[in-house]
Design a binder for these strands. Structure first.
Length: 895
RNA sequence: GCGGACGUGGCGAAACGGUAGACGCAAGGGACUUAAAAUCCCUUGGGGGAAACCCUGUGCGGGUUCGAGUCCCGCCGUCCGCACCA
């Protein structure tokens, strides 16, 4: 039968149009079937898509289509993370308005997503730069403010003096602004914060409930939150030595056991006591200024020498009033962790040891490692940071480190000292001032997690709905005035925030007192805010009155499977988890975890190509020739030699991308989708090669031929399932149902590469079956089995190659859509064999096989095994020591 | 520095503690073609053998087990995350 080649370029748009016209991917909120919410991280609309981007959409779509077939009411929406800096950069570089640039990119990328046939419910499309979206974000900001989850306070930021804007840490490269190249300054700015630290413990504890998240991500979040238990200790200061009579210094430590090894105290350069001392000591002031100049680049921190400055202040040891400790300002103490002050125990902390060795302060070991003799144990240039027995520690001697920590805490909790006259360092227990005496120490849990600063001095973001009034202070924009929309007429011809320069936008009357000279907040929100709740908005995307309808949101949420890159393992996912809690607290939703399941897909890699002059060349411009094992690349247009470079993640900068449009036009979307799902486990990297594309394209054609051949044989089959099947028909049916069982299992586990292998196996089996019967008269039962095989084969690959599947489905005579067909019912009885073949091991090495009835007892199996020639030969008449029979798996004879 | 993951043919990879290398790619041989493409068949971890088969093999060294790619301990290597976090 001459079957024409499958023409993807013609067929794919035709089926996309039919899906679209029939609206079959629209999810209804009132559908009674069980829900399944599958979501791929929405993209930033940077331009057009390349096949590297397509992988997470291909994964998500395979899941969505499979779940639909399994009878779920599937929500599979898509939108645009549309605010952000690149739009402003485009405005500066190309003189195009950020909104126009963004809208144009959305149109381009939407066309790409449609061209690969992802089954989205486009009726729910949202863009975060749409006032109909950010209006609700502003409302929630105000709700959070009222609920005490938003704070305004001073904070240190990286300030680019040329761009006149705040830079994120990752925008600071070697201490310079990534665009301007200007030396970045540390500045104090008043910023808005979301109080994510209110939820530190909850965000940590709840990780245990996220049993469908990758371990790696859970661990990264746990480390990021960074809980540590310790002791907050109030050291008395010798008032005669302090600049303004300060008499107390609070420190945080996790190693209270090493208190008798203390040699010095150290303050962060921006600690209040350090600043107070600097006022009276110009040399100290100069030292502090020097510390601030150092950037935050990791290389610098790594190699930076531990530097300190002796303030002359003396601290008094909590267990010995006569023991005075010098107070230094040191460059390695961070103001925003703990209290910004420490006691230094050099013998048991490497940084402290480096410090004392520089300033010759000496050390006293107080923890003796189990393997060492207390009498001779000494520390020179490597601190011992492990556990052991206490030495040189008075009443702690002989205890373990753990016991000593507990003993110190117990004693210092009971000890009290009068309330500080002048507090040095952070206040710790507000409201206890009236009580008079306070304990010298408190047990304290500290977290690495910091509050989330959301202020950005940018135009293209969600305006913060606040008005500053000289009389009333901070005034929320009244709800009826929301949204606060961005002005259209802005210019980007000078540095800084265009909203600041706008002649009229910032001027507004105070909603409370009517003061005409009030001013709008000109900071906009971090774009991570936009992406922290969009998944809720998808449940009710056109709701004009509220961010969502809690009844609808609660029915859909949480997202059942969220698919995206590992690069979002911390910030986006942590912020979203916080935001759900804040939305729950303010009555917008009823659950706290947004994503029940998470899947982080691997990158798509491609070779890189470079000309002699160093310019990167795109794969499309390169011609590859092979001479035996060697591959050679030339520039197709000129024949110029091109160097083949290493595999890299597809990226614009290395130009090693393959565009969606070009691949869809030359091979079809299904080929591309198949390739990115087939070669590697989806959480690992996959390599895009021309051979891979050709292989996938060949398989597309092979499936098309195979289905047509099987369909022709199955064409004359009876509608009803025959009562009896011949052995050939039964064998085919077994192969069919084995494939069905395996593929279903693979998709559930998201093992798409194994799933692909099983489809290949089934295709191979079907090819053999067709070859075996081609010449014979074909009985009705075999025809029926062949049609069943063809139908199921098509349904198995339909989630991954949906267009080809529709074309095949139609060719098989169906007048329905395979996208709407229920998943085939598995006939388990076909998976059960009457006789099973067990491998037989002798002393753990496979030596033979034995065929036994499925329900054979152990005695019967043992007898069969012992009668095997290979076994008899080894045993040589002796009785085996043991025969291990693992039911339906293996037999091991121990000789 | 701290934390984690991984290490299997020429390559991408499979393998509930139970027959290591499924499936694909590449390579080689063959069929069909005037020829090419497409398609189909065969071979392909290493070593031995005419063959049946045998030996060996999952980074290295130990251990647990009837049985280890898989579990435990110690090395070596690669990758990732965090990082002056007291």
């Amino acid at each position: 039968m001459p079957t024409e080649r499958y023409n993807a370029a013609e067929a794919e748009p035709r089926w996309q149009k039919i899906w679209d016209e029939r609206g079959i991917f629209a999810a209804r909120n009132d559908d009674p079937r069980p829900k399944y919410y599958v979501l791929e991280m929405f993209p930033y609309p940077s331009g057009s898509l390349h096949v590297g981007h397509s992988r997470n959409y291909a994964i998500g779509d395979a899941i969505a289509r499979y779940r639909r077939a399994k009878g779920f009411n599937v929500l599979h929406p898509m939108g645009w993370d549309a605010f952000g800096l690149p739009a402003e950069n485009a405005a500066i570089e190309r003189k195009i308005h950020p909104r126009l640039w963004t809208e144009r990119n959305i149109a381009l990328m939407k066309a790409d997503l449609k061209a690969i046939g992802i089954s989205y419910d486009w009726s729910r499309e949202i863009a975060t730069c749409d006032p109909r979206y950010y209006k609700h974000q502003q409302k929630m900001f105000l709700d959070f403010l009222q609920a005490g989850l938003v704070e305004r306070r001073k904070s240190k930021v990286n300030w680019d003096p040329v761009e006149q804007t705040v830079l994120a840490n990752e925008q600071v490269i070697d201490g310079r602004g990534w665009r301007s190249g200007a030396l970045v300054e540390q500045r104090e700015l008043t910023q808005w914060f979301f109080k994510i630290t209110d939820y530190s413990q909850d965000l940590l504890d709840s990780l245990d409930r996220l049993d469908r998240w990758p371990e790696k991500v859970l661990l990264m979040q746990k480390n990021w939150i960074g809980r540590s238990e310790g002791l907050l200790i109030r050291f008395a200061l010798d008032e005669r030595s302090t600049p303004n009579g300060e008499n107390e210094l609070e420190i945080f430590t996790t190693r209270a056991d090493t208190l008798f090894g203390a040699r010095f105290m150290a303050l962060a350069p921006d600690h209040p006591l350090a600043l107070a001392a600097a006022q009276k000591n110009p040399k100290l002031a100069a030292f502090i200024a020097g510390c601030k100049r150092h950037g935050t680049a990791q290389e610098i921190i790594d190699k930076a020498e531990k530097l300190g400055f002796d303030t002359g202040i003396k601290a008094i040891h909590p267990f010995d009033p006569s023991w005075k400790l010098p107070v230094y300002v040191a460059n390695f103490i961070l103001m925003d962790y703990g209290t910004g002050a420490i006691f230094g125990c050099p013998a048991h902390d490497q940084r402290d040891l480096d410090f004392v060795n520089k300033y010759r302060l000496g050390n006293v070991p107080v923890v003796c490692p189990p393997s060492q003799d207390a009498k001779t144990f000494a520390i020179t240039d490597t601190a011992y940071e492990g556990d052991g027995r206490m030495i040189n520690s008075r009443f702690l001697d002989g205890m373990t480190s753990t016991e000593a920590k507990e003993e110190v805490a117990r004693r210092l909790e009971k000890a009290t000292r009068p309330l500080a006259k002048t507090q040095a360092g952070k206040a710790t227990a507000p409201g206890t001032a009236a009580a008079g005496d306070r304990p010298v120490a408190e047990r304290r849990v500290n977290y690495r997690l910091r509050d989330w600063g959301i202020s950005r001095q940018r135009y293209w973001g969600c305006p913060i709905p606040i008005i500053h009034c000289e009389a009333c202070g901070i005034v929320p924009v009244p709800e009826q005035d929301l949204p606060v929309t961005l002005p259209e007429d802005v210019s980007f011809d000078r540095p800084g925030n265009p909203l600041d320069h706008h002649p009229t936008w910032g001027k507004v009357a105070c909603p409370q007192c009517g003061n005409k000279n009030a001013r709008r907040e000109t900071d906009t929100m971090d774009t991570f805010v936009d992406s922290s709740w969009y998944f809720v908005r998808f449940t009710d995307p056109t709701n004009a009155a509220a961010p969502d309808d809690p009844r609808i949101a609660n029915a859909w949420m949480p997202v059942d499977i969220y698919i995206g890159g590992i690069e979002h393992a911390i910030l986006h996912l942590l912020y979203s988890r916080f935001f759900m809690r804040a939305m729950q607290k303010t009555g917008h939703v009823g659950c706290d975890e947004p994503f029940a399941g998470l899947f982080t897909q691997g990158m798509v890699l491609h070779e890189t190509y470079r000309k002699a002059d160093g310019d990167w060349i795109t794969p499309a411009e390169v011609k590859i020739t092979s001479e035996g094992e060697r591959r050679r690349a030339t520039l197709a247009a000129t024949g110029e030699a091109v160097e083949i470079g290493p595999l890299e993640k597809m990226s614009k900068s290395k130009r090693n991308t393959v565009g969606i449009v070009e691949i869809v036009q030359s091979y079809g979307a299904d080929t591309a989708r198949w390739l990115v799902l087939s070669d590697s486990p989806p959480d690992r990297e996959v390599i895009w090669t021309e051979q891979g594309v050709q292989g996938a394209a060949r398989f597309v054609q092979r499936l098309w031929r195979l289905v047509n051949e099987a369909g022709e044989i199955g064409g004359g089959a009876p509608a009803e399932r025959p009562a009896q099947f011949s052995s050939a028909a039964t064998a085919l049916r077994k192969a069919t149902h084995q494939a069905l069982a395996a593929v279903g299992d693979d998709v559930e586990k998201l093992h798409f590469n194994v799933c692909v292998a099983h489809i290949h196996e089934f295709a191979n089996a079907l090819t053999v079956a067709i070859g075996d019967i081609a010449a014979q008269e074909i009985a009705a039962d075999l025809r029926w089995a062949m049609r069943e095989a063809a139908d199921i084969l098509v349904q198995l690959f339909a989630p991954m190659m949906p267009h080809l599947a529709e074309e095949c489905w139609a060719a098989l005579g169906h007048d329905t859509l395979v996208a709407q067909a229920p998943w085939p019912a598995l006939q388990r009885e076909l998976l059960i064999e009457d006789t099973i073949t067990l491998p037989v091991q002798i002393n753990g090495k496979k030596r033979a096989e034995v065929a036994v009835p499925r329900d054979a007892g152990n005695a019967e199996i043992e007898a069969a095994v012992l009668s095997l020639d290979a076994v008899k030969k080894t045993l040589d008449g002796k009785t085996p020591k043991k025969v291990i029979i693992v039911p339906k798996r293996i037999v091991n004879v121990v000789a």
